[in-house]
């Protein structure tokens, strides 16, 4: 009953909290060409733990923004975000107003989309069923 597969099927959080589960989900997303959404999700968690007073934190915020949100063409993350969420983050980064929770809303939107789409597909995918 407490097999890894049963745990991973409980919730996206239980899947992503487990190294093997997260690795398997990554392989699935690589096939679907949307691994960016997973990297962004982890980047948001990593950012939340950074010290807002550290100069490195601003560089990381800019890097996340540039890589996943600003990208004009075909960014899978950018497509899943609401316009107000994107403009909020643009203002934070350009105005250098950093807060550990600044990516929370964007992360929640990407997470909801993963739960509705990629996670459900993953639970019925060959990669999961053959594990």
């Amino acid at each position: 009953p407490d097999s890894p597969l049963a745990r991973w099927a409980k919730s996206l959080h239980s899947l992503l909290g487990d190294k093997e589960g997260a690795d398997l989900f990554r392989r699935f997303l690589e096939r679907q060409r949307c691994v960016d959404t997973l990297d962004f999700w982890f980047a948001c968690n990593g950012f939340r733990q950074m010290d807002p007073g550290d100069a490195k934190t601003l560089r990381v915020a800019k890097a996340i923004y540039k890589r996943y949100i600003e990208s004009g063409g075909g960014g899978t993350v950018a497509k899943q975000l609401k316009p107000p969420t994107k403009s909020f983050l643009r203002d934070c980064v350009k105005g250098q107003r950093l807060d550990p929770s600044m990516f929370d809303q964007a992360q929640a939107e990407v997470q909801a989309s993963m739960e509705d789409n990629a996670y459900r597909l993953f639970l019925s995918s060959d990669i999961y069923l053959e594990y």
Binding site: D18, F42, A43, K62, A63
Partner: peptide, 20 residues
């Protein structure tokens, strides 16, 4: 000085679950 990609990768890795 670390490149932007390195910083981003470091941030992602810091949040990934570790092997038990």
């Amino acid at each position: 000085i670390d490149s932007e990609d390195d910083l981003l990768q470091e941030c992602i890795s810091s949040a990934m679950p570790k092997k038990k």
